[in-house]
């Protein structure tokens, strides 16, 4: 039984990089037993997305403002391949801390 989580992926256009990151996260977290729902947006849409929905964490490849308490991690490591493990560990730690 996999655990459902929701992830918000943020990049400059809210289109290309965030989709690449989101799909990578879906794959990576499936291996860890999570069923991931993703939304993608750009930094200026962030507040709107956070007010409409609740996310387990945010993965960003463009600087973001106030995440209103949602854990947020830089997704640069997922794009370059340098630092994938750190991203996974930080995100997993925050999921575990939230009991997921």
């Amino acid at each position: 039984m996999s655990t459902r989580i929701k992830v918000l992926s943020v990049c400059g256009s809210g289109v290309v990089t965030s989709h690449m990151v989101a799909n990578k996260i879906v794959d990576m977290f499936a291996d860890e037993g999570y069923d991931v729902d993703t939304d993608e947006c750009n930094p200026s849409e962030l507040d709107g997305y956070l007010s409409r929905g609740s996310y387990d964490f945010i993965a960003y490849s463009s600087p973001i403002g106030d995440a209103h308490g949602t854990p947020a991690f830089s997704a640069m490591g997922l794009i370059t391949g340098l630092g994938e493990d750190e991203f996974m560990q930080d995100a997993l730690d925050s999921l575990h801390a939230a009991g997921k």
Partner: peptide
Amino acid sequence: MGGDGTAMHVKIIFMLAIKDPDSQISTLQ
């Protein structure tokens, strides 16, 4: 990318024209 201002010395530019990322996601991956 990511906005901390780190200088990059680029030798290859990949330029994307993306219309609908959902339908091109496997290529983006």
